[in-house]
Simulated assay, not measured.
Amino acid sequence: MSENLKRLTDQGVSIWLDDISRERLRTGNLEALIRDKYVVGVTSNPTIFASAMSKGDAYESQLRDLVVRGVDVGEAVRAITTFDIRWAADVLRPVFDRTDGVDGRVSIEVDPRLANQSAEQTAAEARALWWLVDRPNVFIKIPATLDGLPAITQALSEGISVNVTLIFSLERYRAVMDAWLEGLERAKANGLDLSKIESVASFFVSRFDTEVDKRLEKIGTPEALELKGKAAIANARLAFAAYEEVVNTPRWQALKDAGARPQRPLWASTGVKNPEYPDTMYVDQLVTAGTVNTMPEKTLDAVADHGNIDGDTVRPFYEQAWNTMAALKQVGIDYDDVVRALEDEGVEKFVTSWNELLGTLETELKKVG
């Protein structure tokens, strides 16, 4: 069942799990996925933590201690989430060591309510999480909002490894790569070891199709409907083309010569949301070396069972991707409006999830109090 996952790994794609829970950690489930299903990293978000906390009794002992200490819900959420991230980082440490720090990474997100606040606040939050987790194989997730970009640069300049999240547009992705390069240049000026600073850029996939498909259905013409389910893959492929352009510039070469590592593109939101589409499409059609695909376990199992992993499905298809984008524009899809709506919705969803996490934690604290 894992032959497809091995083929994906052999193609140069790092398989990360988009999920974490203390139950996974204490039962050895994460270790089993690393051993049996080629998982080499983990991403988390507030929704994942809220779900984990509301099931079973894995958090009960720590919750009791937090009640006894009388901490507020803000401190409690950081105590619980960073505990799990540290544990997962320790489980993945052998992968981190084996891959010379490329994989074996665990991501934890800054408070998403800061996404459209000052970069200074976000940078301070990133610093606090970096200190709290205190593991070399952690990634601090910072949203790629306009306010987030300077925080990304600042964090990297201080030697903090960053997972840039919530990227939808090619223009914003280029701005993210510029922020990354500037952060490394500052880190170099600060005398830091660039080889120790890692970064990934999380380009969201399935949500793009969800938004565009909704608009195509509203347009309703045969030409429009023919384009359903094609926008997200095209957008992601063009993002990789943009990445290739940047890593072939003298600016990047100078940093590479100083020991810097590339900021790998990461395909996020790869669980298929439309049941009419193949459930492995956002994996099968985005295979290329030097990328990460972070999947929910359901998608991981689907790829293991019936994925179609057959060579590079990104680099040979740039022209096709541009043609798809041109066709979308021709039928009336406004790309800039699509990505603006997705970013606004993404930030709102992140904040809603964070508030739900706080609410879940308050409920759980009352249960054991």
Score class of each variant (00 low, 15 high):
D284A: 11
V164M: 09
K196E: 06
A341M: 03
A175E: 15
E158T: 09
R135S: 08
D97M: 00
E297C: 09
A326G: 14
K367C: 12
L170T: 10
N29P: 05
F204W: 02
R93N: 11
V176K: 00
I333D: 12
G28R: 08
L342K: 00
W87F: 07
V138D: 05
R78F: 08
E343D: 10
R113F: 07
V247E: 07
E171N: 13
L192G: 08
G148K: 03
T270E: 04
N29A: 15
R93Y: 05
L328R: 02
S2D: 15
L114I: 08
Q320V: 06
E185W: 02
V71A: 08
T43R: 01
A155L: 06
R215K: 00
G311N: 06
L286D: 00
V73Q: 05
G346N: 12
D301Q: 06
E364N: 14
L255G: 14
V287T: 15
A144G: 14
D10E: 15
L33P: 03
T363H: 08
D344Y: 01
A187I: 03
L194N: 05
A50C: 10
G290N: 04
A123T: 12
I219C: 08
L227G: 05
G271E: 13
D19Q: 12
R7L: 15
L33C: 11
T221Q: 04
A128D: 13
V331L: 00
Y318V: 02
G259S: 12
P296E: 11
L17S: 11
G56A: 12
P94G: 09
V133P: 00
R26A: 11
A189Y: 03
L129W: 03
L184D: 08
L194R: 03
A126W: 09
G191E: 06
R251Y: 01
P316A: 13
Q117R: 07
E244K: 07
L357E: 12
I20Y: 00
R22V: 02
V292M: 02
I309V: 14
Y243E: 03
R78A: 13
T47R: 13
A89W: 04
Q117W: 01
A341C: 07
K141N: 09
S169V: 13
L238V: 10
L5D: 08
S61D: 11
F240L: 12
I152L: 10
L66H: 00
Q117D: 07
I219M: 04
K55Y: 06
A187D: 01
G148Y: 05
R98Q: 14
D111R: 11
A123I: 10
T165A: 02
R105G: 07
D178C: 09
I108Q: 06
E23V: 13
D72K: 10
I15Y: 02
P112V: 13
V102C: 04
T122G: 03
A189Q: 12
T82I: 07
T165S: 03
E3F: 05
M295I: 11
T145P: 09
S107Y: 04
N4L: 01
A201Y: 02
D257Q: 15
S353L: 08
A201S: 14
A115C: 13
V164W: 12
T153P: 06
P296T: 10
A326Q: 10
A79Y: 00
E362L: 14
D36F: 07
E244S: 10
D312T: 03
E120Y: 10
P222I: 12
Q117E: 10
V176R: 00
K6Q: 14
E244I: 00
A241D: 04
S44M: 03
K55C: 02
R340F: 13
V347P: 09
